[in-house]
Write a protein that binds this DNA or RNA. Sequence first.
DNA 1: CGCGGAATTGAACTTTTTCAAATTGAGTGG
DNA 2: CCACTCAATTTGAAAAAGTTCAATTCCGCG
Lengths: 203, 203
Amino acid sequence: MNYRDSSLTCAAPGPSSVRRAAKGTIIYRQNDPAAFRFEVVSGVVRTSYLFMDGRRQLTGFFFAGEAFGVEQGLYRTSAEVVSDGAEFRRFSWGDKDEDERALNQALELVENSILLLGRRTALSRMAAFLLDVRARTGEGGCIHLPMSQADMADFLGLTVETVSRSFSQLVRQRLITRLETHLVRFLDLGRLGALAGTEFEEA
Amino acid sequence: MNYRDSSLTCAAPGPSSVRRAAKGTIIYRQNDPAAFRFEVVSGVVRTSYLFMDGRRQLTGFFFAGEAFGVEQGLYRTSAEVVSDGAEFRRFSWGDKDEDERALNQALELVENSILLLGRRTALSRMAAFLLDVRARTGEGGCIHLPMSQADMADFLGLTVETVSRSFSQLVRQRLITRLETHLVRFLDLGRLGALAGTEFEEA
DNA sequence: CGCGGAATTGAACTTTTTCAAATTGAGTGG
DNA sequence: CCACTCAATTTGAAAAAGTTCAATTCCGCG
Protein backbone atom coordinates (compact mmCIF):
# COMPACT_ATOMS: atom_id res chain seq x y z
CA MET A 1 0.00 0.00 0.00
CA ASN A 2 2.87 2.26 -0.73
CA TYR A 3 3.28 5.26 -2.95
CA ARG A 4 -0.44 5.56 -3.49
CA ASP A 5 -1.13 9.16 -2.79
CA SER A 6 1.37 10.58 -5.24
CA SER A 7 -1.39 12.57 -6.91
CA LEU A 8 -0.38 15.17 -4.38
CA THR A 9 2.54 16.11 -6.56
CA CYS A 10 2.13 19.69 -7.57
CA ALA A 11 -1.49 19.95 -6.53
CA ALA A 12 -3.62 22.98 -7.27
CA PRO A 13 -2.81 26.22 -5.46
CA GLY A 14 -4.60 27.00 -2.25
CA PRO A 15 -4.22 28.25 1.28
CA SER A 16 -1.75 26.60 3.58
CA SER A 17 -3.89 23.97 5.21
CA VAL A 18 -2.22 21.04 6.89
CA ARG A 19 -2.16 17.88 4.88
CA ARG A 20 -1.38 14.42 6.09
CA ALA A 21 0.26 11.84 3.90
CA ALA A 22 1.23 8.19 3.94
CA LYS A 23 4.79 6.99 4.06
CA GLY A 24 6.35 7.12 0.61
CA THR A 25 4.17 9.93 -0.65
CA ILE A 26 6.05 12.11 -3.08
CA ILE A 27 5.51 15.76 -2.28
CA TYR A 28 7.37 17.06 -5.29
CA ARG A 29 9.87 15.75 -7.77
CA GLN A 30 13.32 16.82 -8.82
CA ASN A 31 12.90 19.25 -11.76
CA ASP A 32 9.25 20.02 -11.06
CA PRO A 33 8.54 23.77 -11.17
CA ALA A 34 9.13 25.01 -7.63
CA ALA A 35 5.74 26.59 -7.11
CA PHE A 36 5.58 26.24 -3.33
CA ARG A 37 7.67 25.98 -0.26
CA PHE A 38 6.75 23.63 2.58
CA GLU A 39 7.04 23.10 6.27
CA VAL A 40 6.79 19.92 8.27
CA VAL A 41 4.09 19.95 10.92
CA SER A 42 4.69 16.47 12.28
CA GLY A 43 6.66 13.44 11.24
CA VAL A 44 9.64 13.36 8.92
CA VAL A 45 10.23 14.25 5.28
CA ARG A 46 13.33 13.59 3.21
CA THR A 47 14.72 15.27 0.13
CA SER A 48 16.83 13.34 -2.33
CA TYR A 49 18.78 13.90 -5.49
CA LEU A 50 18.97 11.22 -8.13
CA PHE A 51 22.22 11.04 -10.06
CA MET A 52 22.23 9.98 -13.65
CA ASP A 53 24.24 6.90 -12.75
CA GLY A 54 21.36 5.78 -10.55
CA ARG A 55 22.90 6.65 -7.20
CA ARG A 56 20.77 8.56 -4.75
CA GLN A 57 21.96 11.27 -2.42
CA LEU A 58 19.66 12.33 0.38
CA THR A 59 20.17 16.03 0.93
CA GLY A 60 18.22 16.28 4.13
CA PHE A 61 15.72 15.01 6.66
CA PHE A 62 13.14 17.48 7.89
CA PHE A 63 11.39 17.40 11.25
CA ALA A 64 8.46 19.28 12.75
CA GLY A 65 8.77 23.00 12.22
CA GLU A 66 11.42 22.74 9.53
CA ALA A 67 11.13 24.21 6.05
CA PHE A 68 11.82 22.29 2.86
CA GLY A 69 11.36 22.88 -0.83
CA VAL A 70 12.54 26.45 -0.35
CA GLU A 71 13.75 26.88 -3.91
CA GLN A 72 13.39 29.02 -6.97
CA GLY A 73 12.83 27.83 -10.50
CA LEU A 74 12.85 24.03 -10.48
CA TYR A 75 13.12 21.80 -7.45
CA ARG A 76 16.66 20.50 -7.30
CA THR A 77 15.60 17.47 -5.26
CA SER A 78 12.56 15.30 -4.71
CA ALA A 79 10.71 15.35 -1.40
CA GLU A 80 9.06 12.29 0.10
CA VAL A 81 7.25 11.42 3.28
CA VAL A 82 9.32 9.21 5.56
CA SER A 83 7.11 8.63 8.56
CA ASP A 84 3.61 7.35 8.03
CA GLY A 85 0.96 9.99 8.58
CA ALA A 86 3.38 12.88 8.48
CA GLU A 87 1.78 16.29 8.22
CA PHE A 88 3.04 19.27 6.34
CA ARG A 89 1.92 22.65 5.18
CA ARG A 90 2.31 24.27 1.80
CA PHE A 91 3.08 27.94 1.32
CA SER A 92 2.94 30.22 -1.65
CA TRP A 93 5.71 32.73 -2.08
CA GLY A 94 4.96 36.36 -1.47
CA ASP A 95 5.20 37.07 2.23
CA LYS A 96 8.71 38.47 2.11
CA ASP A 97 9.37 38.11 5.80
CA GLU A 98 8.19 34.54 5.95
CA ASP A 99 9.99 33.69 2.75
CA GLU A 100 13.20 35.04 4.15
CA ARG A 101 12.76 33.20 7.41
CA ALA A 102 12.24 29.95 5.55
CA LEU A 103 15.28 30.59 3.39
CA ASN A 104 17.44 31.27 6.39
CA GLN A 105 16.28 28.15 8.11
CA ALA A 106 16.82 26.02 5.02
CA LEU A 107 20.29 27.45 4.61
CA GLU A 108 21.22 26.73 8.19
CA LEU A 109 19.99 23.17 7.93
CA VAL A 110 21.90 22.38 4.79
CA GLU A 111 25.10 23.99 6.07
CA ASN A 112 24.78 21.86 9.11
CA SER A 113 24.49 18.82 6.90
CA ILE A 114 27.81 19.67 5.32
CA LEU A 115 29.40 19.58 8.72
CA LEU A 116 27.88 16.17 9.31
CA LEU A 117 29.35 14.84 6.10
CA GLY A 118 32.73 16.28 6.93
CA ARG A 119 33.24 13.83 9.73
CA ARG A 120 36.01 11.47 8.80
CA THR A 121 34.89 8.10 10.12
CA ALA A 122 31.59 6.31 9.78
CA LEU A 123 31.22 6.06 13.54
CA SER A 124 31.79 9.76 14.00
CA ARG A 125 29.25 10.59 11.32
CA MET A 126 26.68 8.31 12.88
CA ALA A 127 27.24 9.82 16.30
CA ALA A 128 26.96 13.33 14.92
CA PHE A 129 23.83 12.38 13.04
CA LEU A 130 22.12 10.98 16.10
CA LEU A 131 22.99 14.04 18.14
CA ASP A 132 21.81 16.28 15.36
CA VAL A 133 18.43 14.56 15.23
CA ARG A 134 18.21 14.79 18.99
CA ALA A 135 18.95 18.50 18.98
CA ARG A 136 16.44 19.19 16.24
CA THR A 137 13.55 17.13 17.56
CA GLY A 138 13.90 18.44 21.06
CA GLU A 139 13.77 14.95 22.42
CA GLY A 140 15.94 14.14 25.36
CA GLY A 141 16.94 10.62 26.28
CA CYS A 142 15.43 8.96 23.23
CA ILE A 143 14.97 9.71 19.56
CA HIS A 144 12.69 8.20 17.01
CA LEU A 145 14.31 7.42 13.68
CA PRO A 146 11.53 6.56 11.26
CA MET A 147 13.82 6.42 8.23
CA SER A 148 15.40 3.21 7.03
CA GLN A 149 19.08 2.57 7.41
CA ALA A 150 19.29 2.77 3.65
CA ASP A 151 18.08 6.37 3.96
CA MET A 152 20.67 7.16 6.59
CA ALA A 153 23.30 5.56 4.40
CA ASP A 154 22.35 7.65 1.39
CA PHE A 155 22.35 10.73 3.54
CA LEU A 156 25.66 10.08 5.28
CA GLY A 157 27.46 8.80 2.23
CA LEU A 158 27.89 5.29 3.58
CA THR A 159 26.58 1.84 2.72
CA VAL A 160 23.75 0.19 4.61
CA GLU A 161 26.18 -2.36 5.95
CA THR A 162 28.40 0.32 7.40
CA VAL A 163 25.43 2.06 8.97
CA SER A 164 24.32 -1.19 10.54
CA ARG A 165 27.79 -1.97 11.81
CA SER A 166 28.12 1.53 13.23
CA PHE A 167 24.89 1.09 15.16
CA SER A 168 26.09 -2.23 16.50
CA GLN A 169 29.37 -0.66 17.51
CA LEU A 170 27.66 2.21 19.33
CA VAL A 171 25.51 -0.30 21.17
CA ARG A 172 28.50 -2.49 21.99
CA GLN A 173 30.32 0.53 23.42
CA ARG A 174 27.21 1.30 25.48
CA LEU A 175 26.72 4.76 24.03
CA ILE A 176 23.18 3.94 22.95
CA THR A 177 20.62 1.16 23.20
CA ARG A 178 17.88 0.30 20.80
CA LEU A 179 14.49 -0.05 22.37
CA GLU A 180 12.69 -0.80 19.17
CA THR A 181 13.90 -0.91 15.62
CA HIS A 182 13.55 2.81 15.16
CA LEU A 183 13.83 4.04 18.72
CA VAL A 184 17.24 4.89 20.11
CA ARG A 185 18.06 5.69 23.70
CA PHE A 186 21.16 7.66 24.58
CA LEU A 187 23.30 6.23 27.32
CA ASP A 188 26.32 8.52 27.27
CA LEU A 189 25.88 11.84 25.54
CA GLY A 190 29.30 12.98 26.63
CA ARG A 191 31.23 10.21 24.95
CA LEU A 192 28.92 10.32 21.97
CA GLY A 193 29.65 14.02 21.61
CA ALA A 194 33.35 13.38 21.86
CA LEU A 195 33.04 10.79 19.12
CA ALA A 196 31.13 13.22 16.96
CA GLY A 197 33.82 15.83 17.33
CA THR A 198 32.08 17.81 20.04
CA GLU A 199 30.47 20.54 18.15
CA PHE A 200 27.12 19.60 19.60
CA GLU A 201 27.14 20.24 23.30
CA GLU A 202 25.12 18.33 25.83
CA ALA A 203 21.82 19.78 26.95
CA MET B 1 53.76 38.31 5.08
CA ASN B 2 50.65 36.35 5.70
CA TYR B 3 47.50 37.14 7.59
CA ARG B 4 48.48 40.74 8.02
CA ASP B 5 45.39 42.66 7.08
CA SER B 6 43.04 40.94 9.48
CA SER B 7 42.01 44.27 10.91
CA LEU B 8 39.33 44.07 8.27
CA THR B 9 37.36 41.74 10.46
CA CYS B 10 34.02 43.32 11.18
CA ALA B 11 35.03 46.75 9.99
CA ALA B 12 32.87 49.82 10.49
CA PRO B 13 29.58 50.01 8.57
CA GLY B 14 29.49 51.80 5.27
CA PRO B 15 28.23 51.70 1.73
CA SER B 16 29.04 48.72 -0.41
CA SER B 17 32.27 49.83 -2.00
CA VAL B 18 34.57 47.22 -3.42
CA ARG B 19 37.46 46.30 -1.20
CA ARG B 20 40.53 44.41 -2.19
CA ALA B 21 42.38 42.15 0.21
CA ALA B 22 45.51 40.09 0.41
CA LYS B 23 45.55 36.32 0.51
CA GLY B 24 44.79 35.08 3.99
CA THR B 25 42.75 38.08 5.00
CA ILE B 26 40.00 37.11 7.36
CA ILE B 27 36.74 38.72 6.33
CA TYR B 28 34.79 37.52 9.34
CA ARG B 29 35.14 34.88 11.99
CA GLN B 30 32.99 32.00 13.09
CA ASN B 31 30.70 33.30 15.87
CA ASP B 32 31.13 36.96 15.00
CA PRO B 33 27.80 38.81 14.85
CA ALA B 34 26.58 38.45 11.28
CA ALA B 35 26.18 42.13 10.54
CA PHE B 36 26.72 41.98 6.79
CA ARG B 37 26.45 39.76 3.82
CA PHE B 38 29.08 39.74 1.08
CA GLU B 39 29.65 39.12 -2.55
CA VAL B 40 32.83 38.25 -4.37
CA VAL B 41 33.78 40.69 -7.12
CA SER B 42 36.95 38.96 -8.25
CA GLY B 43 39.15 36.20 -6.96
CA VAL B 44 38.20 33.46 -4.54
CA VAL B 45 36.99 33.37 -0.94
CA ARG B 46 36.56 30.34 1.28
CA THR B 47 34.39 29.70 4.31
CA SER B 48 35.45 27.22 6.95
CA TYR B 49 34.20 25.72 10.14
CA LEU B 50 36.58 24.83 12.93
CA PHE B 51 35.67 21.82 15.01
CA MET B 52 36.53 21.67 18.64
CA ASP B 53 38.85 18.76 18.00
CA GLY B 54 40.89 21.00 15.71
CA ARG B 55 39.71 19.62 12.43
CA ARG B 56 38.65 22.08 9.79
CA GLN B 57 35.80 21.71 7.35
CA LEU B 58 35.62 24.08 4.42
CA THR B 59 31.98 24.72 3.66
CA GLY B 60 32.51 26.49 0.39
CA PHE B 61 34.60 28.32 -2.16
CA PHE B 62 33.13 31.48 -3.63
CA PHE B 63 33.91 32.94 -7.03
CA ALA B 64 33.12 36.21 -8.74
CA GLY B 65 29.46 37.11 -8.43
CA GLU B 66 28.75 34.66 -5.62
CA ALA B 67 27.30 35.58 -2.25
CA PHE B 68 28.77 34.49 1.06
CA GLY B 69 28.21 35.32 4.70
CA VAL B 70 24.47 35.28 4.06
CA GLU B 71 23.53 34.46 7.63
CA GLN B 72 21.48 35.64 10.55
CA GLY B 73 22.64 35.95 14.12
CA LEU B 74 26.23 34.78 14.31
CA TYR B 75 28.38 33.66 11.43
CA ARG B 76 28.54 29.89 11.50
CA THR B 77 31.80 29.85 9.58
CA SER B 78 34.85 32.01 9.05
CA ALA B 79 35.52 33.61 5.68
CA GLU B 80 39.02 34.14 4.31
CA VAL B 81 40.54 35.41 1.12
CA VAL B 82 42.08 32.64 -0.96
CA SER B 83 43.46 34.41 -3.99
CA ASP B 84 45.74 37.36 -3.52
CA GLY B 85 44.11 40.67 -4.32
CA ALA B 86 40.59 39.27 -4.30
CA GLU B 87 37.86 41.88 -4.30
CA PHE B 88 34.55 41.72 -2.56
CA ARG B 89 31.64 43.89 -1.63
CA ARG B 90 29.85 44.22 1.66
CA PHE B 91 26.09 44.64 1.95
CA SER B 92 23.85 45.65 4.77
CA TRP B 93 20.59 43.83 5.16
CA GLY B 94 17.41 45.64 4.28
CA ASP B 95 16.83 45.41 0.56
CA LYS B 96 14.39 42.54 0.72
CA ASP B 97 14.69 41.61 -2.90
CA GLU B 98 18.45 41.60 -2.88
CA ASP B 99 18.54 39.78 0.44
CA GLU B 100 16.30 37.09 -0.93
CA ARG B 101 18.34 36.76 -4.08
CA ALA B 102 21.51 36.33 -2.05
CA LEU B 103 19.84 33.76 0.18
CA ASN B 104 18.65 31.78 -2.78
CA GLN B 105 22.05 31.80 -4.34
CA ALA B 106 23.75 30.79 -1.12
CA LEU B 107 21.29 27.97 -0.66
CA GLU B 108 21.82 26.68 -4.16
CA LEU B 109 25.58 26.75 -3.75
CA VAL B 110 25.59 24.86 -0.48
CA GLU B 111 23.11 22.26 -1.72
CA ASN B 112 25.35 21.73 -4.67
CA SER B 113 28.25 21.16 -2.30
CA ILE B 114 26.34 18.37 -0.63
CA LEU B 115 26.05 16.65 -3.96
CA LEU B 116 29.79 17.01 -4.42
CA LEU B 117 30.46 15.35 -1.09
CA GLY B 118 28.06 12.56 -1.88
CA ARG B 119 30.36 11.16 -4.52
CA ARG B 120 31.69 7.85 -3.33
CA THR B 121 35.27 7.78 -4.52
CA ALA B 122 38.00 10.36 -4.20
CA LEU B 123 38.52 10.46 -7.95
CA SER B 124 34.85 11.05 -8.60
CA ARG B 125 34.74 13.86 -6.06
CA MET B 126 37.79 15.52 -7.56
CA ALA B 127 36.33 15.27 -11.06
CA ALA B 128 33.02 16.70 -9.89
CA PHE B 129 34.82 19.48 -8.06
CA LEU B 130 36.83 20.50 -11.10
CA LEU B 131 33.75 20.53 -13.29
CA ASP B 132 31.86 22.50 -10.69
CA VAL B 133 34.56 25.16 -10.59
CA ARG B 134 34.58 25.24 -14.35
CA ALA B 135 30.83 25.70 -14.53
CA ARG B 136 30.85 28.44 -11.92
CA THR B 137 33.77 30.46 -13.22
CA GLY B 138 32.57 30.37 -16.78
CA GLU B 139 35.99 29.34 -17.94
CA GLY B 140 36.24 26.90 -20.74
CA GLY B 141 39.30 24.80 -21.42
CA CYS B 142 41.19 25.86 -18.33
CA ILE B 143 40.45 26.72 -14.74
CA HIS B 144 42.48 28.54 -12.20
CA LEU B 145 42.56 26.93 -8.76
CA PRO B 146 44.15 29.42 -6.38
CA MET B 147 43.41 27.34 -3.29
CA SER B 148 45.90 24.88 -1.84
CA GLN B 149 45.35 21.17 -2.06
CA ALA B 150 44.92 21.25 1.69
CA ASP B 151 41.92 23.51 1.13
CA MET B 152 40.47 21.17 -1.45
CA ALA B 153 41.04 18.28 0.92
CA ASP B 154 39.24 20.00 3.78
CA PHE B 155 36.43 20.85 1.43
CA LEU B 156 36.04 17.43 -0.15
CA GLY B 157 36.56 15.48 3.03
CA LEU B 158 39.80 13.89 1.88
CA THR B 159 43.43 14.07 2.91
CA VAL B 160 45.98 16.14 1.04
CA GLU B 161 47.70 12.98 -0.04
CA THR B 162 44.54 11.64 -1.59
CA VAL B 163 43.90 14.94 -3.37
CA SER B 164 47.42 14.90 -4.76
CA ARG B 165 47.11 11.30 -5.86
CA SER B 166 43.76 12.01 -7.49
CA PHE B 167 45.30 14.83 -9.49
CA SER B 168 48.13 12.60 -10.59
CA GLN B 169 45.67 9.95 -11.59
CA LEU B 170 43.56 12.36 -13.64
CA VAL B 171 46.70 13.52 -15.38
CA ARG B 172 47.88 9.96 -15.98
CA GLN B 173 44.50 9.12 -17.51
CA ARG B 174 44.86 12.19 -19.72
CA LEU B 175 41.64 13.81 -18.50
CA ILE B 176 43.49 16.97 -17.49
CA THR B 177 46.94 18.52 -17.67
CA ARG B 178 48.50 20.98 -15.31
CA LEU B 179 49.98 24.00 -16.98
CA GLU B 180 51.12 25.66 -13.79
CA THR B 181 50.70 24.66 -10.21
CA HIS B 182 47.25 26.13 -9.97
CA LEU B 183 46.16 26.08 -13.59
CA VAL B 184 44.34 23.05 -14.91
CA ARG B 185 43.49 22.34 -18.52
CA PHE B 186 40.67 19.95 -19.40
CA LEU B 187 41.49 17.33 -21.97
CA ASP B 188 38.36 15.20 -21.96
CA LEU B 189 35.26 16.75 -20.45
CA GLY B 190 33.16 13.79 -21.48
CA ARG B 191 35.10 11.19 -19.59
CA LEU B 192 35.59 13.56 -16.70
CA GLY B 193 31.84 14.04 -16.51
CA ALA B 194 31.29 10.32 -16.61
CA LEU B 195 33.72 9.94 -13.74
CA ALA B 196 31.90 12.61 -11.79
CA GLY B 197 28.60 10.82 -12.17
CA THR B 198 27.37 12.89 -15.08
CA GLU B 199 25.21 15.40 -13.43
CA PHE B 200 27.24 18.16 -14.99
CA GLU B 201 26.79 18.09 -18.71
CA GLU B 202 29.39 19.15 -21.21
CA ALA B 203 29.23 22.67 -22.59
C1' DC C 1 2.00 -18.99 9.49
C1' DG C 2 4.59 -17.53 5.85
C1' DC C 3 6.30 -13.86 2.69
C1' DG C 4 9.36 -10.11 1.60
C1' DG C 5 11.80 -6.18 2.79
C1' DA C 6 15.04 -4.56 6.26
C1' DA C 7 18.80 -5.34 9.14
C1' DT C 8 22.77 -7.96 10.59
C1' DT C 9 26.98 -10.50 10.18
C1' DG C 10 31.11 -12.63 7.94
C1' DA C 11 34.97 -12.62 4.85
C1' DA C 12 37.54 -11.03 0.96
C1' DC C 13 38.73 -7.11 -1.39
C1' DT C 14 39.41 -2.07 -2.41
C1' DT C 15 40.07 2.44 -1.15
C1' DT C 16 41.68 5.79 1.78
C1' DT C 17 44.37 7.11 5.54
C1' DT C 18 48.52 7.33 8.01
C1' DC C 19 53.26 7.88 8.60
C1' DA C 20 57.65 8.93 6.50
C1' DA C 21 60.54 10.77 3.24
C1' DA C 22 61.80 13.08 -0.95
C1' DT C 23 60.88 16.78 -4.14
C1' DT C 24 59.31 20.99 -5.79
C1' DG C 25 58.21 25.87 -5.41
C1' DA C 26 57.73 30.44 -3.71
C1' DG C 27 59.50 34.14 -1.19
C1' DT C 28 63.51 36.23 1.49
C1' DG C 29 67.67 38.14 2.38
C1' DG C 30 72.27 38.48 0.99
C1' DC D 1 70.76 36.91 -9.27
C1' DC D 2 71.65 33.20 -6.19
C1' DA D 3 71.38 30.63 -1.97
C1' DC D 4 68.46 29.53 1.67
C1' DT D 5 64.32 28.38 4.12
C1' DC D 6 59.86 26.94 4.87
C1' DA D 7 55.62 25.52 2.99
C1' DA D 8 53.25 22.80 -0.42
C1' DT D 9 53.17 18.85 -3.17
C1' DT D 10 54.35 14.26 -4.43
C1' DT D 11 55.35 9.47 -3.74
C1' DG D 12 55.93 4.98 -1.24
C1' DA D 13 54.63 1.41 1.93
C1' DA D 14 51.92 -0.34 5.69
C1' DA D 15 47.75 -0.04 8.34
C1' DA D 16 42.99 1.03 8.87
C1' DA D 17 38.48 1.80 7.34
C1' DG D 18 34.83 1.04 4.19
C1' DT D 19 32.78 -1.53 0.45
C1' DT D 20 31.23 -5.52 -1.80
C1' DC D 21 29.26 -9.91 -2.09
C1' DA D 22 26.94 -13.60 0.17
C1' DA D 23 24.28 -15.57 3.61
C1' DT D 24 21.35 -15.26 7.74
C1' DT D 25 18.31 -13.39 10.84
C1' DC D 26 14.75 -10.30 12.15
C1' DC D 27 10.25 -8.07 11.73
C1' DG D 28 6.06 -6.16 10.04
C1' DC D 29 2.15 -7.46 7.66
C1' DG D 30 -1.14 -9.94 5.10
